[in-house]
Design a protein around this nucleic acid. Structure first.
Length: 277
DNA sequence: AAGCACACCTGCTAGC
DNA sequence: TGCTAGCAGGTGTGCT
């Protein structure tokens, strides 16, 4: 579920509401959520500490602590961070609870238990959180100009969709936003990345910025199953502006023809065969 | 290197 | 109504 705009929305929420507040008692009930280390390591790593900043790299939340350690959270498919009053009913699948001041608590909720919570020494990031060390440039923070995107596309000849999905190439895009970006750019998901002309690279870059910017402003996309919500439990609205993802058989905004869907590399790809020929 | 299948889980929906 | 199969936003591994 959560891709860059959703994680960015959570990051901004944490920056506004949790950063700077002392952490109280920590309760870990979900073994799988802390599988990178252990329940004891997470409890010991967080209790009494303070989160001093809220950062993001790709889909990873990076939360530096006041002892120079780093709290890393990845929501994967179904993870949520929720801020709630202490004592209010905890949702099913609440795996980690961190006490805060003012009778509030921060909860990590994750039905599918793919998400992860780990406290690491930043110096040992490559060993303790290998996914982060290999991340490519962040799709929002590190691709300010077309000149930043071009080398990623030209490095090798790969189909655009798997390239954009590859977190080692570009960090932050997932299945929804790759389909939205390619549709708006009028580029086939199967087009070889290195075959793009300079003007096509510029167009793709502009669309990438626009889609992510609009999606962040809309606080992300919340689909029918409500698996993505922000810290306060509210949904995003960018799904209302999806032009490709989830719109199989519905008219393309460009040509009016039906949006097609294909199963590719184990996941759905939505595109317009006419506008993205 | 790159591409693919599959594994990891639960919950929801469509179809019978 | 009730069961089952299929599907889901992500990533890591292990195989061609």
């Amino acid at each position: 579920m959560p891709e860059l705009p959703e994680v960015e929305t959570v990051r901004r929420g944490l920056a506004a509401t949790v950063v700077g507040r002392p952490l109280g008692p920590v309760v870990v009930t979900g073994q799988r959520t802390v599988r990178r280390t252990s329940p004891a390591a997470v409890v010991k790593g967080l209790r009494g500490r303070t989160i001093v900043a809220a950062q993001r790299r790709g889909k990873y939340l990076m939360l530096p602590l006041d002892d120079a350690k780093l709290l890393v959270v990845h929501l994967r498919m179904s993870g949520q961070l929720r801020l709630a009053p202490e004592g209010s009913p905890r949702p099913k699948h609440t795996h980690v609870v961190v006490g805060l001041d003012r009778d509030e608590e921060l909860r990590f909720v994750d039905p599918r238990t793919f998400g992860e919570v780990v406290v690491v020494d930043p110096a040992r990031l490559p060993e303790e959180a290998p996914g982060i060390a290999g991340l490519g440039p962040d799709a929002w923070d590190d691709l300010a100009s077309p000149g930043d995107l071009a080398p990623v596309l030209m490095a090798r000849s790969r189909a655009l969709k798997p390239l954009l999905l590859d977190q080692h190439a570009i960090a932050g895009l997932g299945n929804i936003y790759t389909d939205e970006v390619l549709h708006r750019a009028g580029l086939s998901p199967w087009r070889a990345s290195s075959s793009l002309s300079p003007s096509e690279v510029e167009r793709l870059h502009g669309v990438l910025r626009a889609v992510l910017g609009e999606a962040i402003e809309a606080r992300g996309s919340t689909l029918g199953d409500d698996q993505y919500v922000d810290l306060a439990g509210g949904g995003g609205t960018f799904q209302q502006r999806h032009l490709a993802y989830g719109r199989e058989g519905q008219p393309c905004g460009g040509c009016g023809g039906p949006i097609a869907r294909v199963k590719w590399a184990g996941r759905s790809t939505f595109w317009c065969p006419t506008c993205q020929a």
